[in-house]
Each structure stands twice: as C-alpha cells, then as structure tokens.
Simulated scan of single mutants.
Amino acid sequence: MMEASDLLARCRPLERKYSANPASAQVVFRSRGRVDPEGVACRVETGHGITVTGLHRATGGTGADRAAEDMLLEALVGCAGVTLKAIAAREGIVLDDAQIEAEGVLDFRGTLGIADDAPVGFSAIRLVFRIASDADDATLDALIAATRARCVVFQTLTCMPELVVARA
C-alpha cells in the first residue's frame, strides 16, 4: 500500500516534468474486448486479467457476468476514492474512514428499444461521500469539491469528451 509521503515523492518529479513538457502528460489509454462467439457477452482485457461483461438481468441477462452499468459506477467510485485520498494526503487531511457510494437510475425501456421517450443510459447518478475525520466541515467540503474537480471519471461524465465510432 502506498503511503502519503510515497505519493508526494512520486508526484513531485512528474509535476515538474509535465510543467516543463505538457505533451509528456498526455497518455493514451486502451481497452480491448472480444465478443463471445457462443453467448451474449464480451471478454474485456483489463490490464489485471480478463473480465466478462454480459447483459444486466433487467435486459434478460443471467447475472453470471458483470454488467457494464455496474462497472461504470464502480469506476466512478474507485476514481473518486483514490482522488479523494490523494488530495487529502497532499493537503495533510487525515481521513479516519472514507466511504463513497454511487447510485445510478436507468430505465431499461430505452436500452431495449421499447419506448422512444425513455433515455438510453443513466438519467441520474448520485455520488455520496461519508467521511470520518477531525477536519472541519469546510475543509471536508473543499476536499469533496476538489475531488469532484480532479476525478477523471466524474469529469468525463460531466464534460462528455468527443466520442468517435469507427469500423476498422
């Protein structure tokens, strides 16, 4: 497990490098998957192994595979958690405990194509922080605001990047 002092020591040279050469801060991430030839699933390479994504039970899935909808919320919680911890470490805020919960509302009528007025995708996502700390409320509110501003997944959802779909 990385300690706060280790994080700070690792970040300082990167900050200097990225300030001196902004192009060096740009990293291209990739994800690859292969559609299962037999079932309705996709095997996704994660960098830490393979995860099989399948249909959510609300769309006829069996529940045996991971649903992408759950994975999106898991990515948001994970990103918010590490961002919160990194900012707290940098600011010297001691967190006795911190829990993050994401809840999303999704109407599967849109996904299944049975109601044109039903959106496809989450219509609302709530992110809740439960933090135990000696820090005062203003400090914790500022920590959450900074987390929101620096969380890659949160900002991607709110700022919606250019999306390109292509056939190779």
Results as ranks from 00 to 15, higher is better:
residue 130 R to P: 04
residue 44 V to D: 08
residue 29 F to P: 00
residue 71 M to H: 09
residue 43 R to P: 06
residue 31 S to V: 14
residue 18 Y to W: 12
residue 54 G to V: 02
residue 24 S to N: 01
residue 158 T to L: 13
residue 30 R to L: 05
residue 126 R to L: 10
residue 166 A to E: 15
residue 87 I to H: 04
residue 109 R to G: 03
residue 9 A to G: 12
residue 22 P to W: 01
residue 2 M to W: 07
residue 134 D to E: 15
residue 53 T to A: 12
residue 157 L to A: 08
residue 120 V to C: 09
residue 74 E to P: 00
residue 154 F to H: 15
residue 31 S to R: 03
residue 24 S to V: 05
residue 62 T to D: 13
residue 108 F to N: 04
residue 158 T to I: 14
residue 142 A to N: 07
residue 121 G to P: 02
residue 18 Y to A: 11
residue 90 R to E: 15
residue 148 R to D: 10
residue 52 V to R: 02
residue 10 R to I: 08
residue 125 I to C: 06
residue 40 V to A: 10
residue 29 F to L: 13
residue 142 A to D: 03
residue 17 K to I: 09
residue 98 A to P: 03
residue 164 V to S: 10
residue 15 E to T: 11
residue 157 L to M: 15
residue 34 R to S: 12
residue 115 A to W: 09
residue 145 A to T: 12
residue 78 G to M: 08
residue 1 M to A: 14
residue 71 M to K: 07
residue 142 A to Y: 01
residue 130 R to E: 13
residue 159 C to E: 15
residue 62 T to Q: 06
residue 23 A to W: 00
residue 136 D to C: 08
residue 86 A to R: 03
residue 150 R to V: 04
residue 31 S to I: 11
residue 127 L to T: 05
residue 107 D to M: 07
residue 132 A to W: 00
residue 62 T to S: 15
residue 112 L to M: 15
residue 41 A to W: 02
residue 106 L to H: 13
residue 26 Q to A: 10
residue 105 V to F: 00
residue 94 V to H: 05
residue 68 A to D: 11
residue 55 L to I: 05
residue 55 L to F: 06
residue 161 P to F: 06
residue 22 P to T: 07
residue 29 F to T: 11
residue 141 D to A: 14
residue 85 K to N: 14
residue 136 D to F: 07
residue 107 D to P: 05
residue 80 A to G: 10
residue 167 R to E: 14
residue 5 S to I: 12
residue 81 G to C: 07
residue 109 R to N: 12
residue 21 N to Q: 11
residue 8 L to T: 11
residue 39 G to F: 04
residue 94 V to N: 01
residue 105 V to A: 12
residue 113 G to R: 09
residue 49 G to R: 04
residue 139 T to A: 14
residue 81 G to M: 06
residue 50 I to F: 00
residue 52 V to C: 07
residue 49 G to V: 05
residue 61 G to K: 02
residue 44 V to G: 04
residue 39 G to C: 09
residue 9 A to H: 06
residue 70 D to A: 12
residue 139 T to L: 03
residue 78 G to K: 04
residue 83 T to S: 10
residue 122 F to G: 01
residue 145 A to P: 03
residue 161 P to N: 15
residue 4 A to W: 03
residue 92 G to V: 09
residue 86 A to G: 12
residue 156 T to F: 07
residue 4 A to N: 10
residue 43 R to N: 14
residue 11 C to E: 08
residue 149 A to I: 06
residue 98 A to E: 01
residue 136 D to P: 04
residue 47 G to A: 08
residue 157 L to C: 11
residue 99 Q to K: 10
residue 13 P to K: 08
residue 46 T to C: 06
residue 129 F to K: 09
residue 59 T to I: 14
residue 85 K to G: 12
residue 64 A to P: 02
residue 11 C to T: 13
residue 74 E to N: 11
residue 70 D to L: 10
residue 91 E to I: 05
residue 102 A to Q: 01
residue 26 Q to L: 10
residue 109 R to D: 03
residue 106 L to V: 15
residue 80 A to Y: 02
residue 122 F to N: 02
residue 152 V to S: 13
residue 127 L to Q: 03
residue 44 V to R: 00
residue 26 Q to F: 00
residue 123 S to V: 08
residue 52 V to D: 08
residue 94 V to Y: 00
residue 107 D to G: 08
residue 9 A to Y: 00
residue 71 M to A: 14
residue 152 V to G: 04
residue 73 L to E: 04
residue 98 A to W: 01
residue 62 T to H: 04
residue 156 T to E: 13
residue 65 D to L: 02
residue 35 V to W: 06
residue 149 A to V: 07
